[in-house]
Protein backbone atom coordinates (compact mmCIF):
# COMPACT_ATOMS: atom_id res chain seq x y z
CA UNK A 1 0.00 0.00 0.00
CA UNK A 2 1.44 3.35 -1.03
CA UNK A 3 0.00 6.87 -0.95
CA UNK A 4 -1.14 6.78 -4.61
CA UNK A 5 -2.96 3.50 -4.11
CA UNK A 6 -4.68 4.69 -0.93
CA UNK A 7 -5.73 8.07 -2.33
CA UNK A 8 -6.85 6.29 -5.51
CA UNK A 9 -9.10 3.98 -3.51
CA UNK A 10 -10.48 6.90 -1.49
CA UNK A 11 -11.10 8.91 -4.64
CA UNK A 12 -12.99 5.91 -6.09
CA UNK A 13 -15.00 5.60 -2.89
CA UNK A 14 -15.76 9.34 -2.92
CA UNK A 15 -17.03 9.09 -6.51
CA UNK A 16 -19.36 6.21 -5.65
CA UNK A 17 -20.73 7.96 -2.54
CA UNK A 18 -21.14 11.34 -4.32
CA UNK A 19 -23.29 9.68 -6.99
CA UNK A 20 -25.41 7.75 -4.48
CA UNK A 21 -25.99 10.87 -2.35
CA UNK A 22 -26.74 13.03 -5.38
CA UNK A 23 -29.50 10.64 -6.49
CA UNK A 24 -30.81 10.09 -2.97
CA UNK A 25 -30.90 13.77 -1.91
CA UNK A 26 -32.39 15.08 -5.16
CA UNK A 27 -34.72 12.06 -5.48
CA UNK A 28 -33.70 12.03 -9.13
CA UNK A 29 -31.25 10.32 -11.45
CA UNK A 30 -31.61 12.87 -14.26
CA UNK A 31 -28.42 13.15 -16.29
CA UNK A 32 -27.03 9.86 -15.00
CA UNK A 33 -26.40 6.96 -17.40
CA UNK A 34 -28.02 3.83 -15.97
CA UNK A 35 -26.08 1.84 -18.55
CA UNK A 36 -22.71 2.98 -17.19
CA UNK A 37 -23.88 2.08 -13.68
CA UNK A 38 -24.95 -1.42 -14.80
CA UNK A 39 -21.53 -1.86 -16.41
CA UNK A 40 -19.77 -0.82 -13.17
CA UNK A 41 -21.91 -3.30 -11.20
CA UNK A 42 -20.85 -5.97 -13.71
CA UNK A 43 -17.20 -4.88 -13.36
CA UNK A 44 -17.24 -5.29 -9.56
CA UNK A 45 -19.17 -8.56 -9.72
CA UNK A 46 -16.76 -10.23 -12.14
CA UNK A 47 -13.62 -8.85 -10.44
CA UNK A 48 -14.48 -9.56 -6.82
CA UNK A 49 -15.44 -13.24 -7.19
CA UNK A 50 -12.16 -13.88 -5.34
CA UNK A 51 -14.01 -12.81 -2.19
CA UNK A 52 -15.11 -16.44 -2.15
CA UNK A 53 -11.71 -17.96 -2.89
CA UNK A 54 -9.05 -15.90 -1.11
CA UNK A 55 -8.64 -13.51 1.81
CA UNK A 56 -6.17 -10.65 1.32
CA UNK A 57 -6.87 -8.21 4.16
CA UNK A 58 -9.76 -6.78 6.15
CA UNK A 59 -9.31 -3.50 4.22
CA UNK A 60 -9.50 -5.36 0.90
CA UNK A 61 -12.61 -7.35 1.83
CA UNK A 62 -14.46 -4.35 3.32
CA UNK A 63 -13.75 -2.07 0.36
CA UNK A 64 -14.84 -4.75 -2.12
CA UNK A 65 -18.11 -5.27 -0.25
CA UNK A 66 -18.73 -1.50 -0.07
CA UNK A 67 -18.00 -1.01 -3.79
CA UNK A 68 -20.28 -3.89 -4.82
CA UNK A 69 -23.05 -2.90 -2.41
CA UNK A 70 -23.00 0.75 -3.56
CA UNK A 71 -22.92 -0.26 -7.24
CA UNK A 72 -26.07 -2.37 -6.90
CA UNK A 73 -27.75 0.27 -4.71
CA UNK A 74 -27.11 2.85 -7.45
CA UNK A 75 -28.57 0.57 -10.13
CA UNK A 76 -31.60 -0.05 -7.88
CA UNK A 77 -32.18 3.69 -7.37
CA UNK A 78 -31.97 4.38 -11.11
CA UNK A 79 -34.03 1.47 -12.45
CA UNK A 80 -36.50 0.94 -9.60
CA UNK A 81 -36.92 3.60 -6.91
CA UNK A 82 -36.44 6.72 -9.06
CA UNK A 83 -37.14 5.11 -12.41
CA UNK A 84 -39.60 7.91 -13.33
CA UNK A 85 -36.70 10.40 -13.36
CA UNK A 86 -34.41 8.21 -15.48
CA UNK A 87 -33.61 9.85 -18.80
CA UNK A 88 -33.66 6.70 -20.95
CA UNK A 89 -34.03 8.56 -24.25
CA UNK A 90 -30.64 10.22 -23.83
CA UNK A 91 -28.99 7.06 -22.46
CA UNK A 92 -28.83 5.50 -25.90
CA UNK A 93 -25.26 4.16 -26.05
CA UNK A 94 -25.25 0.59 -27.40
CA UNK A 95 -23.53 -1.34 -24.59
CA UNK A 96 -23.26 -4.54 -26.65
CA UNK A 97 -20.62 -2.69 -28.69
CA UNK A 98 -18.54 -2.60 -25.51
CA UNK A 99 -19.40 -5.86 -23.77
CA UNK A 100 -19.01 -8.18 -26.78
CA UNK A 101 -15.53 -6.99 -27.94
CA UNK A 102 -14.34 -6.77 -24.31
CA UNK A 103 -15.58 -10.33 -23.71
CA UNK A 104 -13.75 -11.56 -26.80
CA UNK A 105 -10.55 -9.72 -25.88
CA UNK A 106 -10.54 -11.11 -22.33
CA UNK A 107 -10.75 -14.66 -23.72
CA UNK A 108 -7.90 -13.95 -26.17
CA UNK A 109 -5.50 -11.88 -23.99
CA UNK A 110 -5.25 -12.98 -20.35
CA UNK A 111 -2.68 -14.30 -17.88
CA UNK A 112 -4.27 -17.72 -17.52
CA UNK A 113 -7.08 -19.45 -19.39
CA UNK A 114 -9.26 -20.22 -16.36
CA UNK A 115 -12.80 -19.00 -15.59
CA UNK A 116 -11.87 -16.73 -12.64
CA UNK A 117 -8.86 -15.31 -14.46
CA UNK A 118 -10.87 -14.58 -17.63
CA UNK A 119 -13.59 -12.89 -15.57
CA UNK A 120 -10.94 -10.79 -13.76
CA UNK A 121 -9.47 -9.76 -17.13
CA UNK A 122 -12.97 -9.03 -18.46
CA UNK A 123 -13.60 -6.71 -15.50
CA UNK A 124 -10.34 -4.83 -16.09
CA UNK A 125 -11.07 -4.31 -19.80
CA UNK A 126 -14.73 -3.45 -19.19
CA UNK A 127 -13.93 -0.92 -16.47
CA UNK A 128 -11.67 0.97 -18.86
CA UNK A 129 -14.63 1.77 -21.16
CA UNK A 130 -17.62 1.55 -18.77
CA UNK A 131 -17.87 5.35 -18.48
CA UNK A 132 -18.48 5.80 -22.22
CA UNK A 133 -22.33 5.65 -21.99
CA UNK A 134 -22.15 8.44 -19.37
CA UNK A 135 -19.81 10.60 -21.46
CA UNK A 136 -21.98 9.89 -24.52
CA UNK A 137 -25.06 11.03 -22.62
CA UNK A 138 -23.37 14.31 -21.62
CA UNK A 139 -22.25 14.95 -25.19
CA UNK A 140 -25.83 14.31 -26.34
CA UNK A 141 -27.54 16.62 -23.87
CA UNK A 142 -24.63 19.10 -24.04
CA UNK A 143 -24.52 19.67 -20.28
CA UNK A 144 -23.98 18.10 -16.88
CA UNK A 145 -24.96 19.11 -13.38
CA UNK A 146 -22.01 20.30 -11.32
CA UNK A 147 -22.38 17.46 -8.81
CA UNK A 148 -22.24 14.97 -11.70
CA UNK A 149 -18.96 16.55 -12.83
CA UNK A 150 -17.51 16.12 -9.31
CA UNK A 151 -18.46 12.43 -9.54
CA UNK A 152 -16.75 12.08 -12.91
CA UNK A 153 -13.65 13.93 -11.71
CA UNK A 154 -13.21 11.63 -8.69
CA UNK A 155 -13.80 8.57 -10.87
CA UNK A 156 -11.22 9.67 -13.42
CA UNK A 157 -8.72 10.75 -10.77
CA UNK A 158 -8.91 7.29 -9.18
CA UNK A 159 -7.46 5.47 -12.19
CA UNK A 160 -4.90 8.20 -12.82
CA UNK A 161 -3.67 7.73 -9.21
CA UNK A 162 -3.53 3.98 -9.80
CA UNK A 163 -1.15 4.63 -12.72
CA UNK A 164 1.23 6.39 -10.31
CA UNK A 165 0.73 3.47 -7.89
CA UNK A 166 1.82 1.03 -10.60
CA UNK A 167 4.89 3.13 -11.42
CA UNK A 168 5.71 3.10 -7.67
CA UNK A 169 5.22 -0.67 -7.45
CA UNK A 170 7.40 -1.25 -10.49
CA UNK A 171 10.30 0.70 -8.98
CA UNK A 172 10.00 -0.47 -5.39
CA UNK A 173 8.57 -3.98 -5.76
CA UNK A 174 9.66 -4.89 -9.30
CA UNK A 175 6.05 -5.65 -9.96
CA UNK A 176 3.85 -4.87 -12.92
CA UNK A 177 0.75 -6.15 -14.71
CA UNK A 178 0.63 -5.29 -18.40
CA UNK A 179 -3.12 -5.98 -18.74
CA UNK A 180 -4.00 -3.61 -15.90
CA UNK A 181 -1.52 -0.94 -17.04
CA UNK A 182 -2.68 -0.80 -20.69
CA UNK A 183 -6.36 -0.82 -19.65
CA UNK A 184 -5.65 1.78 -16.95
CA UNK A 185 -3.95 4.10 -19.47
CA UNK A 186 -6.92 3.74 -21.86
CA UNK A 187 -9.33 4.42 -18.99
CA UNK A 188 -7.47 7.56 -17.88
CA UNK A 189 -7.10 8.89 -21.43
CA UNK A 190 -10.89 8.68 -21.92
CA UNK A 191 -11.26 11.26 -19.11
CA UNK A 192 -8.71 13.76 -20.45
CA UNK A 193 -11.20 15.81 -22.45
CA UNK A 194 -13.47 15.89 -19.41
CA UNK A 195 -10.60 16.84 -17.05
CA UNK A 196 -9.88 19.82 -19.30
CA UNK A 197 -13.51 21.01 -19.17
CA UNK A 198 -13.63 20.41 -15.40
CA UNK A 199 -10.57 22.59 -14.73
CA UNK A 200 -11.42 25.35 -17.22
CA UNK A 201 -15.15 25.58 -16.42
CA UNK A 202 -16.40 23.83 -13.28
CA UNK A 203 -13.52 24.90 -11.02
CA UNK A 204 -14.11 28.50 -12.15
CA UNK A 205 -17.70 28.28 -10.97
CA UNK A 206 -19.31 27.73 -14.34
CA UNK A 207 -21.70 24.95 -15.27
CA UNK A 208 -20.36 22.32 -17.62
CA UNK A 209 -22.08 22.93 -20.94
CA UNK A 210 -20.80 22.02 -24.35
CA UNK A 211 -21.06 24.33 -27.38
CA UNK A 212 -24.08 23.39 -29.50
Amino acid sequence: MNIFRLTGDLSHLAAIIILLLKIWKSRSCAGISGKSQILFALVFTTRYLDLFTSFISLYNTCMKLIYIGCAYATVYLIYAKFRATYDGNHDSFRVEFLVVPVGGLSVLINHDFSPLEILWTFSIYLESVAILPQLFMISKTGEAETITTHYLFCLGLYRALYLFNWIWRFYFEGFFDMIAIVAGVVQTVLYCDFFYLYVTKVLKGKKLSLPA
Binding site: R5, S54, N60, M63, H111, N165, G174, F175, F176
Partner: peptide, 10 residues
Protein backbone atom coordinates in the same frame (compact mmCIF):
# COMPACT_ATOMS: atom_id res chain seq x y z
CA UNK B 1 9.85 -7.64 -12.99
CA UNK B 2 7.10 -10.20 -12.86
CA UNK B 3 3.94 -10.12 -14.89
CA UNK B 4 1.39 -11.25 -12.38
CA UNK B 5 -2.01 -10.17 -11.19
CA UNK B 6 -2.60 -7.24 -8.90
CA UNK B 7 -5.00 -9.30 -6.82
CA UNK B 8 -4.40 -7.19 -3.73
CA UNK B 9 -5.80 -4.15 -5.54
CA UNK B 10 -9.40 -3.11 -5.91
Amino acid sequence: GTDSNLKDEL
